[in-house]
Design a protein around this nucleic acid. Structure first.
Length: 471
DNA sequence: TCTGGGGTCCTAGGACCC
DNA sequence: TCTGGGGTCCTAGGACCC
């Protein structure tokens, strides 16, 4: 999908279509998640600090992400992909590999050709637009690596085929960074060895690459530089770890506060672990200091657990082993060594507790509520009206928060199917104003599951399907 | 106003075991 | 009192990806 989060925002907020939109963390330490193409023209891009983006593009709309909505739109798109083949490997909410050969979409027992593949890709792009109002790009090739490179070239709103046999010639002049797995560090190492392009990686030879980058990385890169990539498309992969982390608006120094936050994170981590029906054996704590230096401490239990108390206690011991007095900007808690099923083995959990070294046991972490409101938490009468979030006003209907401050909140009243709406300002505690659920770009009720799109439709809808938003 | 959050994979050293 | 060799597990850190 092209500029996915920003594109969903534009599709659901009519006044933002054609305008620069930036989605990401709105706090003092936020970064850009997605910038619309209109915004990218001014310089902002993914992972850029939000403060820098605001300097470059002060007139953009800055919005907090609505992940629940993105997930719903993603499910619709992934559903369309699964109609092409059962072998679909999602990489994220907005990107997936499809093994067309494992499907039947070529029609008759057919051989895939560049032309039949192109036709399927173009039909897919039309179906995605008809179903979601959004544009996606398609890369078609004989392997995952090349399909990915093709889709990068196709963006935005395009399709690129790399016919078999043309791979090496196409890759040779491209920068080394084009290959998956070549990031800043690897590119630097290669550059120091006089290697700048994919062709030069191939020329360097396997022995040289292994010497420079190590067995696994060097070997893999050498093969990929020949245009060879045998990795299969894998539809379902079990998660190997679950983790949560928080960056705080200001550095934490207070010991009790740090312990309270770690306990909170441990609870959130276990919540997600349990939701996935898993348990894990190794607890990891991550600490990022005021100077951005980052370290992890881990502890492996005698058996897997999904007990919040066990994870909290391990995490408390681990954070206790780190000097946090100079200030901490991020804390994280994770669990790895996941078992395939929920472990109800009380013996193992009792054993894990007994395994604690005597004497170093920290005070019981305070329960989350006792720690006071956490950053970003909604509490009491003071609601946080974050820009981009959905609201409903008793008189004016559905809209979204454009901004707030000084006891006021500004709302734009429009919804996916409406024309661009107008803005009104209220007191933050206006009783007629309340948070509400997102409306999808194709219209419909917030609580409804997405209506399964008609994939046979060849509608060239350039606009989202007209909404049936309720009064 | 400098740097999110959730992951994966690899490497390397030490402990431990046969 | 000179030193084996290979395998697995654990811990920590780093690179990379979206």
């Amino acid at each position: 999908m092209d500029a996915f989060y920003a594109a969903v925002e534009q599709a659901t907020k009519p006044s933002l279509r054609g305008k620069p939109v930036i989605v990401g963390g709105l706090g003092p330490r936020g970064v850009v998640a997605t910038a619309s193409y209109e915004a990218r023209a001014y310089g902002p891009h993914s992972a850029m600090p939000m403060a820098q983006a605001r300097r470059l593009c002060p007139n953009a709309a800055y919005l907090t992400p609505r992940f629940g909505l993105y997930r719903r739109v993603s499910e619709v798109v992934m559903g369309l992909l699964r109609e092409l083949s059962p072998l679909v490997e999602p990489l994220s909410l907005d990107e997936a590999f499809v093994d067309l050969q494992a499907g039947e979409a070529s029609g008759a027992a057919g051989e895939w050709t560049a032309d039949t593949a192109r036709a399927v890709g173009e039909r897919l792009r039309r179906d995605i637009r008809a179903a979601t109002g959004l544009s996606g790009s398609v890369g078609l090739a004989g392997s995952k690596m090349l399909a990915k490179i093709a889709s990068e070239q196709a963006k935005p709103d395009g399709l690129v085929v790399i016919p078999p046999g043309t791979e090496r010639a196409l890759l040779a002049p491209m920068p080394a960074r084009t290959l998956p797995g070549v990031g800043p560090a690897t590119a630097q190492t290669l550059r120091r060895a006089g290697i700048a392009t994919v062709g030069e990686i191939a020329e360097a030879g396997e022995a040289e690459l292994v010497r420079l980058l190590g067995r696994a990385h060097g070997g893999a890169l050498y093969v990929m530089a020949q245009g060879i990539d045998e990795r299969p498309v894998v539809a379902e992969r079990d998660a190997k770890s679950v983790s949560v982390e928080d960056t705080f608006d200001t550095d934490l120094t207070d010991r009790a506060r740090i312990h309270a936050e770690v306990a909170r994170l441990a609870d959130r981590c276990v919540e997600r672990l349990r939701a996935a029906g898993r348990s894990g054996r190794t607890v990891v704590v991550k600490v990022r200091s005021y100077d951005f230096s980052t370290l992890t401490r881990s502890e492996t239990l005698r058996g897997p657990t999904d007990d919040p108390a066990v994870v909290r206690e391990a995490a408390a011991r681990l954070v206790e082993s780190v000097d946090t007095t100079a200030g901490v900007r991020l804390l994280g808690v994770g669990v790895s060594g996941l078992a395939a099923f929920t472990q109800e083995d009380l013996f193992a959990q009792a054993g894990a507790r007994a395994a604690e070294p005597p004497g170093v046991r920290p005070p019981e972490p305070a329960p989350p509520v006792a720690a006071g409101p956490a950053a970003g938490e909604d509490h009491g009468a003071v609601r946080r009206w974050l820009p981009g979030l959905d609201v409903r006003h008793a008189r004016y209907g559905p809209g979204w928060v454009q901004g707030s401050g000084l006891g006021r909140v500004t709302v734009r009243f429009e919804s996916p199917g409406s024309p661009p709406g107008r803005v009104r300002t209220f007191a933050v505690d206006d009783p007629e104003l309340e948070p509400s659920e997102p409306l999808p770009p194709w219209g419909g009720q917030p609580s409804e599951p997405a209506i399964r799109p008609n994939v046979m439709s060849s509608s060239e809808a350039g606009e989202p399907t007209p909404g049936t938003s309720s009064p």
